[in-house]
Design a binder for these strands. Structure first.
Length: 211
DNA sequence: CGGCTGATGATCT
DNA sequence: GATCATCAGCCGG
């Protein structure tokens, strides 16, 4: 039982406010920074799963690492939705990945959610992920989606609407955001498009990328 | 803690 | 047929 969430992050105390679309930056880089510290909520089976987003990556227009680089396909269609929609795809045949679309409708760009600090439904998250340590419940994009019970069925969902999966206002004190290169890509790998809360133990990736 | 490896299947060429 | 926006497990220091 490692670090208990700070008081400001504890469940139930105050209702989390849904983010409206107009507060989301259009630009994926700005959106990626904006989402560090915001919350992700999934109301499912009468329970609430939620956490604080602590790590993101931006995928831009003209970015060779982006799934949208070669244009629109059946898989990446949700990347072209107006900002604030879910783009979910299956990575390495097994792992769902959750992105938040950025930009105007018709523009293929998004922000990958890479790590979450669990807040509500921690035991339910642990169950859906097998016996994982709290620190590992949502540390990494595949783990995050698994813990939050995000599946392909959520592809295209409006995260700024009335649905069960949504983005919430930031919780907790202001944080310092650090920037590095993105993880696990080979093309356009030098771009500084990964953002995370400095010092947060729920952030994924090798230590050399945690400054 | 850091480094390596096999699993695994959709997607696109 | 190649390429993955990864993960868990194992091994060594």
């Amino acid at each position: 039982m490692l670090p208990k969430p700070p008081a400001a992050l504890r469940s139930g105390d105050e209702p989390v406010r849904r983010l409206s679309r107009d507060v989301l930056p259009l630009d994926a880089t700005e959106l990626a920074r904006f989402l560090v510290g915001a919350t992700l909520v999934h109301d499912v089976d009468g329970a609430r799963l939620s956490g604080r987003i602590v790590e993101t990556e931006a995928y831009l227009v003209g970015d060779a690492a982006s799934h949208a680089f070669r244009g629109r396909t059946a898989r990446n269609g949700a990347m072209f939705l107006e900002r604030g929609h879910a783009y979910v795809y299956i990575s390495y045949g097994c792992w769902p990945m959750l992105n938040v679309s950025a930009g105007e409708a018709g523009v293929g760009t998004a922000v990958l959610l890479r790590a979450l600090e669990p807040i509500d439904g921690i035991e339910a998250m642990r169950e859906s992920r097998g016996a994982a340590r709290i620190l590992d419940i949502a540390r990494g994009p595949g783990r995050l989606a698994g813990a939050m019970r995000v599946t392909l069925a959520d592809d295209g969902a409006d995260l700024c609407g009335d649905g069960p999966l949504w983005l919430g206002a930031p919780l907790g004190p202001p944080m310092t955001i650090a920037t590095t290169t993105r993880i696990g890509i080979t093309k356009d790998a030098e771009r500084p498009l990964r953002f995370f809360e400095r010092g947060n133990p729920f952030v994924s990736g090798p230590r050399r990328l945690i400054d």
